[in-house]
């Protein structure tokens, strides 16, 4: 499981928790998010803009 961060607003997409409001189940991997995924906080950064923050010791 990994975390990815929006470079503009700092929102963190954590694969372990997903995003319940947006309909991404816990465990949804970042690469499995649709290509038109936009930051669910600021909406002005796209999937390709997100930066890998860290990978936990848990293996996928």
């Amino acid at each position: 499981m990994a975390k990815y961060q929006c470079p503009d607003c700092g929102y963190i997409y954590d694969e372990a928790t997903g995003n319940e409001h947006e309909g991404y189940e816990p465990g949804t991997r970042f690469e499995d998010l649709s290509d038109d995924f936009a930051c669910p906080a600021c909406f002005v950064r796209d999937k390709e803009d997100f930066a890998l923050l860290e990978k936990s010791s848990l293996k996928k």
């Binding site: 503009d8 607003c9 600021c42 909406f43 002005v44």
Partner: peptide, 8 residues
């Protein structure tokens, strides 16, 4: 201008 560049 700032609002749209950085909406949050």
């Amino acid at each position: 201008s700032d609002h749209h560049a950085h909406p949050t």
